[in-house]
Nucleic acid binder design. Structure first.
Lengths: 366, 366
DNA sequence: GTGAAAGCGCTAACAC
DNA sequence: GTGTTAGCGCTTTCAC
């Protein structure tokens, strides 16, 4: 990419041990190389290097390496209004969904010489707004946002102001921003098909909140898949207040006590599935003997549960990485691929929660 | 605390909706309030506010609020060499051990008006050095480091240069830096006592790598606890190459094929325990019927395994929070509590991996 | 190809 | 109590 980050990399290679404490300034380097600071700046800047003689470039680079020069990005940023910092905004880092996203983004970013600033909004819009304002004040070059709500004034503002923002995982209703997520629709379709193939007809969907695109998308896909399979859809969708274990448990309890008949649950995500499993266990129903359950996301350790959770694997790390790449493109080339709405392919991971034959299906398919 | 972060908070309260896009400068505010920029600066700075008349303060604050002024922290940082940014250095965010630490730190930091920069070093010292250098170039005020190795030249350099650094989770041999971690010694003691109470005599420790303080500390505590209980210690400690499932599995396999007799395993952490469990299952040994296993850390979902893992709970979030508080104290009061070495209390969580009676204890206690 | 000079937005001495 | 001035470290015109 451009600018200083590369220089750092170059120095890193040159010196092998990059000083972490010295505070050498550009003037010092210039002095050591016997040139003016401006010349040293040009020599060290890939974009301007061509304006300087090869000999001078070499001398400056040598001096910089010897002194262990690390450019002061604050000063540079003040001058160029570029910081080589990208902010990642997530709702809750302790939700196992997000660490892989963080990791994917961080890898791409740091390879490109960018620094990642992480912000955990604790699922609170006010906090989020304050944090984003603070990041902007710190001069971050752009945002990767994993907290998008379906109606999200903050994102609308940012989009309107032309601030580089890429959405990952969740989208807004506006869709004015580039987005990369998993193919939730396909994932749900895979779940429904799998359960239907197992003989289930009465399938219920524990939907995520409708103020998230993932919640809406999956609920919509569920209805469509049920219709496509000609399965009964009456009161088959229960919306949960949040994508959490607790919300899943509450919803499942409600479902159980409602006396509705169902032999399978398609949960909006793994946490919801976990909650449902707990509620089922409390009600004395065994999984998968009495009922089948599917999750979504394939969080860490979902394979180690008993029964192991059938779920949909989403390439979370790729999601973070691609989001970061889209942001870099915007930031570096000063133009967003505004219409880029990428859905990453997902995969059904069949495990024990759905492997057993259905005990008491209301109807058996021919 | 001091400086601008508070101003942001103030503005946040005043305006309720904090603008996130406008780029109003201090001069603009000053002009609007009919004063000089320097006066506006003083009026907005809690520390210098007393030098300004109450009327002027009010006028400036009003103008700032009306214009949606957000101070440019880059410019301030350039002048004051303070950035109100703290860096958190962790080895791998996808390791469930770290998200709670991140969360705890972030909460304290953002309450104090600080921004958290997260850096995932991927367990690579070279990457870590490069990242830390980059953060320094970005003018971060201090570091919270969760990656400390027992011999760690980077940390020695930082300590010598008097850079504010607080260690969490792991320590260095030097101990020249403030540190907050869990009481690993006590945790292991609890495990050994628990197993011994169950009748186990042949207990083996799957130790973490000896280039981490946690690995060393726990191995040492294990030996001591065994000695205290007068239990046999011969070849009872196996060091694993890393705190990972794979390393635990390999070590456990080695253990099993070595024909050593043992009826219980005290693993250095949960991941190691998970690996051991897998190896045991492969070897046809059932837990807890044939053998008991304990873990360490109580990661997410450890209660949902079958059998549920007996483990030691460490207050990870508190660890991050306290680490952040210690760093803030250093940064704000310009003095480290250099000798602060805090061990947070831990708790044994007894679950299924150790609850069954021992099948074939070599000896039963009276 | 290189040097001189200005200025990014802010704060800290120093005046008054 | 407030204005003036200088400068943080860098990049970028503009000369030469």
């Amino acid at each position: 990419m451009t600018g200083a980050p590369q220089r750092i990399a170059v120095l890193g290679v040159r010196r092998r041990i990059l000083s972490v404490v010295e505070r050498v300034k550009l003037v010092d380097v210039a002095r050591a190389a016997g040139v003016h600071a401006a010349t040293a700046s040009r020599a060290l800047n890939p974009a301007a290097r061509s304006e300087v003689s090869r000999r001078t470039v070499r001398r400056v680079e040598l001096a910089a390496a010897r002194l262990g020069y690390v450019p002061n990005t604050l000063a540079r940023g003040l001058r160029t209004s570029r910081s080589y910092v990208a902010a990642l905004v997530i709702p809750d880092i302790t939700n196992p969904l997000f660490p892989p996203i963080v990791r994917g983004a961080q890898q791409v970013l740091s390879e490109a010489g960018f620094t990642l600033v992480l912000t955990d909004t604790n699922n609170d819009p006010a906090t989020e707004r304050a944090q984003v304002a603070s990041m902007r004040a710190h001069g971050v070059d752009g945002f990767i946002v994993a907290t998008a709500r379906w109606d999200d004034p903050l994102l609308d503002e940012l989009a309107e102001a032309n601030v580089p923002v890429v959405l990952v995982n969740r989208q807004t209703s506006g869709s004015a921003l580039p987005y990369v997520g998993g193919d939730g629709g396909r994932g749900i379709e895979l779940c429904v098909d799998h359960l239907a193939d197992l003989g289930h007809r009465r399938i219920v969907h524990l939907a995520g909140p409708s103020d998230t695109s993932t919640g809406r998308e999956r609920a919509g896909a569920f209805r469509q898949a049920m219709r496509a399979r000609k399965l009964p859809l009456t009161s088959a969708v229960v919306e949960c207040g949040a994508f959490t274990e607790d919300a899943g448990e509450v919803a499942a309890q409600r479902l159980i006590s409602s006396q509705r008949t169902f032999t399978a649950i398609v949960a909006g995500n793994d946490l919801l599935a976990l909650g449902a499993l707990a509620a089922l266990a409390d009600a004395g129903m065994q999984c998968p003997r009495d009922i089948s359950v599917t999750g979504f996301d394939d969080l860490t350790f979902m394979d180690k549960l008993t029964p192991a959770l059938t779920t949909v694997r989403v390439p979370l790390s790729d999601m973070g990485a691609l989001g970061a790449r889209m942001l870099l493109e915007w930031v570096e080339h000063r133009q967003a691929r505004h219409l880029a709405q990428t859905l990453l392919p997902v995969e059904l991971i069949v495990r024990a929660t759905t492997t057993a034959p259905v005990a008491t299906p209301r109807t058996r398919p021919a």
